[in-house]
Structure formats: C-alpha cells, structure tokens
Design a binder for these strands. Structure first.
Lengths: 341, 341
DNA sequence: TTGTATGCGTTATCAT
DNA sequence: ATGATAACGCATACAA
C-alpha cells in the first residue's frame, strides 16, 4: 500500500523561512520575490519560486499586516437592522460587486455589522488599524452615522450621504433624472392622473426620485399632489397604494420609487379587480428580482448595481493605495420596458 | 476657543505598550486584563481598564493573530457563479444568520469568492492559516468541491453535501418530510393531478424534496410521473410549468421545490388565463420574499434560514474552540398557509 | 499576582 | 543584488 499522505496530523503551514532554507537563500530574498521586487536576480528568483511552489507556501497575512502596518482588508459596514438590509436586493447586489472586485486584489472583505447599541465598539474596530478602509451600504436604510469617520479612515458610501456629502466619497445613481424619464413614459402615453409611491424623505434616493417624478408631472401640466410615501418595503408599497386609491380620485398610473413597493402596489391594485396596465400603469425603479417575479412584468429603471459596488471597492482601494480617484461618481441608468405600462 | 481635538494629523493608534505605561504596569498585565485572565488583582485590573478606556485602545488583530497563531476569522466560501448566488434569498439569509452570530464573538467574517479557474488559490488561502475555519453555503449551487478540506480545516456546510456526508459537519432542513407535508395539503384538498417542479437532481434539496412529493402522491394513490425539473431559478420554473401544461394532461395542483420556481410557474399559469388556486393550486418551498411578492400570496414551507446560518456559525466556532458539537443539525419547518391553495 | 524575556512570520533598514 | 538584524504589537512560558 502506498501512502499518498503523510501520517502524523496535518502538515505544518510552510513559512517564509522554510522556503528560504529550501531555496538556499535568505528570508529577505524570499520576501523580495514574494513582493516581486525588481532588484533580485532572475535566476535566483526562479529557484525561489520553485521552492514556493514545492512547499505550497502562502504568506501569513497576520505577520505581513503587522510588519507593513496594513491590514489588507476593508470593512463592509452593515447597519444593525440587518433583517431589512439582507432582504434588500439592492444591498446584496452591491455586495456582490464589491466582493467581485476585491477578489482580484489582495484585500479581504470584512463584514462588520454595526451595533447601534454600542457604536464605540465599531468605531474602535475601524480606527484600531484592523482595516484599511470601509465601505458603507445604506441606500435604503439612511444610516449614515459613519460619515464623521471619513476624516480618519478611507471610506466610500453607496449613495450620496444625507449629511457631509460635501467631502464624502461616494458612488451614486442618477436618481432624479432617471425618475423623471420613467415618469415621462407615463405622461407620454397619455396618463393623466399619475401618482407616486415615494421613498422616505430623509433618504437621498427617496428625495431625489420624488423630485424627478414631480418635474415630469409638472412639465406635463398635471397634478403633483398624488404622493404617498412608503419605506421601500413591499408592505409599505401596498399600504401607500391603498391610501392613494382611497383618496377617491381617479388614478391611472403610478410611479413607485422602487420595485418592491411597486410589487406591493400590484397586490392591492389587482386585489381590487383593477388591471395592469389597462386600468393603472405602473413603473418601478431598480430592476431587481421583484420586477420579473411579478405579473405582468414590471417596467422599471435599471441601474448597474453590481458595477456600482465594483466602483465603490475600486475607489476605496485607490484611496488606500494613495492613487488619485474621483470623489463622486454617478452611474447612469436605463429604462427597461416590460408589460406594466 | 477650546480645542477639543489635537491638531497634527490623526492620533496614532494606541498600543498595548502605551496602555501599560499609562496604567503603570507591565505589558503582560495589560494583556492579561484584555484577555480577562482570572489571575489579576481586581484593583489593578480596574486601573488598567481605565487606561484602556482613556486611550480608546483596541488590540491589534494582526499582532494578536500572530502571537496566538490563530486568525480569529472564518471564511465564507462563495462559489464563483456569484451572480446566481447573490440573487438567491436563501443564500443571503443564511449569510445574515452567520453574520449575526459572529458579531457577538470576536471572529471576523471573510467573504472569499472561490474562483473555479484557480482552486489552488482558494485552497492555499484556506490552508495557509489565514482563517480558522470555513463556512460553505451552496444549497442551490451544488458546489461541494470543498468537502475534501474538511480533514484539514474546520468546515461547516449549509445543507448535506452530496459527497462525503458521512463525516462532514452540516446543518440542514428536513427537506423530505416538509415536502411531503406540503404535498399532503394538496392531496387532502381533493386535488387529483398533482405535479411537481423539482430542483436539480444532483443537489440534495432537489432530490429530497422530490422524494417527499413522491411519497405523498403515492400514499394518495395518485400518478407520480408528473414531474419536470428546473434549476431553482424563476425562469426555469416557468419553463417547467410550460412543459407540464403542454403534456396535454390535466394538472390541478403543483408543488414547486422552491418559491422562485413557483413564482415562475405563476407567470405561465396566469399567462394562459388559468386561475390560482381555482384552476391550479400551487405550493412552494422556502417562504422567501418571492412568496409574498406574488399574487395570490403563495402557500409554502417556511424554514428558519437565519437560524440555520446562526447554527452553522455556532457549530464552526465550537469546532474551532475545541468544544464538542453535533456533527449534523436538522432544522424543522412549518407550513405557512396563504392564498395559493 | 506580576514582570521579564522570547517568539510569532514578515517587512524594512542597513551593511556588505 | 544579497544577507544580517531590528522592528511590528501581542501572548506566554518562566522567573520572581
């Protein structure tokens, strides 16, 4: 019987020192090869690489961080109300983009869920040199209580922060313009009573999308008072739609500030025996999974969320590396026409 | 004007040494306090704690890891087909549970997306002492190519792995029993042509849920050939439903192996002018966001996914800490009755 | 109970 | 171009 695996427990993790010994060079040289320093003899470098390969050596992150005074990791700050946030396709998609970008760097992604009860814990973790930067995704949560750390730690936000936007780094979607275009779809098709289910008015996306809707209905000379606000959840969208319908005034179209609320609106519209789009046209915003899981499929605003996440990570890494980078980047959107209008 | 903040750039990160100096003790003592060692004078401990507070000291993770030869972090392995995985509410919810549990420990969550192109990279990262354990969530992806590392690194799987289940640690949902109960809902209400949209037959959830359905239809003396398989995506559910309807045989009920596929089925059922549940009753599995975003709301199987994630993390931490822990945990489910049956 | 000294695996500074 | 050697911040035998 041939033993293909050494007995005696798991093989010890190879160290730089072992590589040095095998290659017959000093640790310094191995280190140089690992960090591909230019000043190392090509031949020597080769033999070192061979030794690395042979031992399946991987640098110890902790030791490296300690020596370089650099964590090589970035934090993903998640507001405590996690249950909401994880149910939000926007959030998960941004994270996907972030994760994908970071995979190609040697930064590690640290998820830290920020307890609102003891913010100092999070604070000192972030400032304690455990991460080199932080990403904040709170699009639909409004939690921007971390903006003040921007001065002490590289930080990038998903969406313009409500306060401190003057010097914060962020990447954002062109909410207002897109909302306006989406609403124009409705005005252009002859709808005359165009309502909106707005997002919370203390969050930039909520504010901006409402503004976009208002611009469009006004320029069409229509009533701009048909607004009810929700909180971006499906249930709140349903309630808002109810209130809209209960006003007793005709409504023949509705622009929802996100797809989840649009889906909520669907349930009450169809629940009352009204047809989409014949009786009421509806358009959403985000083009997330809700848009296609609903019948009829929802016409909505698509924005490249994965790209947004990717860009956030890229910006952060650039900041950390000291490379120049844009403080704010605006992602453009597109209308995706389906069957709800 | 009172200066509340020192000028001269960011305050240097406080070290254990500085705390020791301020408290007038040795670094060893501070270290003991930090790791709350029992053998330290309560009074002294207090003054040390005061110093820690005053300096806002946080232990440097890298240094600590290096000294303890422990990363204090666990990896969350994500299959490369990330786009699919992030769109899967099951995945994100499990992650939520994991994150929530870890927040209360001092383990950090490392998201590593496993490139299938160069698995050695992931392998040596995992085995290189950079993490103390790994969590793999591939419920709907079937990627269990990491089972073989179980011997070298504490690992916990979400869902029974297809291979190596004999010694793998995992936490799983009682898929078969739940699928059976769900289907009985249909047989009990008098449906006679009960189809199923099954999941992939190379994934345990796909296999087990189909088995559960089969048990129920057989015990009711019904045809057990009305099965089409999908891949857990909405689109595949729609296609499967189409095939089912195109068989030319009447179908008055369908059990979908997950809610997304059920939602897909909705689109074609309603697209053909059939009513749910009058013409066709449908029941899903998972009770995710799709279940309530659809009209009529979907009757489905609820399982505590957050808890599943939490349990995974707990199991892994126990393994790492050397505490005894159950190798396999089965989470129980419940039926949630809504309007689709 | 407390302090001293050494090691953890790398990088960086300095000679050579 | 390469090799000693000293940090990096903390934990831990061991000594006191």
């Amino acid at each position: 019987m041939i033993m293909t695996q050494r007995a005696g427990g798991p093989r010890p993790v190879p160290t730089l020192e072992m590589v040095a010994a095998l290659a017959g060079v000093s640790r310094a040289t191995v280190s140089r090869v690992v960090n591909d320093s230019p000043s190392v003899d090509p031949e020597l470098a080769q033999s070192v690489r061979k030794a690395i390969e042979a031992l399946d050596y991987t640098p110890n992150r902790a030791a490296r961080s300690l020596a370089k005074r650099r964590a090589n990791s970035v934090a993903l700050i998640i507001p405590e109300s996690t249950s909401k946030v994880f149910a939000d396709p926007f959030f998960t998609t941004v994270v996907q983009g972030i994760a994908m970008y970071l995979t190609d760097t040697d930064f590690t992604l640290n998820m830290v869920i920020a307890s609102e009860a003891k913010p100092e814990k999070t604070r000192s973790f972030l400032l304690g040199g455990n991460v080199d930067g932080a990403l904040v995704v709170s699009h639909h949560s409004g939690d921007h209580s971390w903006t003040h750390l921007s001065g002490s730690l590289p930080m990038v936000f998903a969406g313009r922060p409500l306060v401190g936007a003057e010097d914060a780094y962020y990447v954002e979607v062109e909410n207002e313009a897109a909302a306006c275009s989406a609403t124009r779809l409705l005005t252009a098709s002859g709808r005359r009573s165009i309502a909106t289910i707005a997002g919370p008015q203390d969050m930039p996306p909520g504010i901006d999308r409402l503004a976009g809707w208002r611009t469009a209905v006004r320029e069409a000379g229509l009533d701009d008072q048909l607004v009810e606000v929700g909180d971006f959840t499906l249930a709140s969208g349903a309630r808002a739609m109810q209130r809209l319908l209960d006003r007793g005034r005709p409504v023949d179209a509705v622009f929802a500030a996100n797809d989840q609320m649009a889906a909520g609106a669907y349930t009450v519209i169809q629940g009352r025996g009204l047809r989409i789009p014949e009786d009421i046209a509806v358009v959403g915003f985000d083009d997330d999974s809700f848009a296609t899981s609903v019948t009829p499929a929802l016409t909505t605003v698509n924005h490249p969320i994965v790209e947004l996440g990717r860009k956030m990570a890229e910006t952060l890494v650039d900041m950390i590396e000291g490379r120049p980078t844009d403080r704010v980047t605006i992602m453009s959107t597109s209308l995706v026409l389906r069957d709800s209008v």
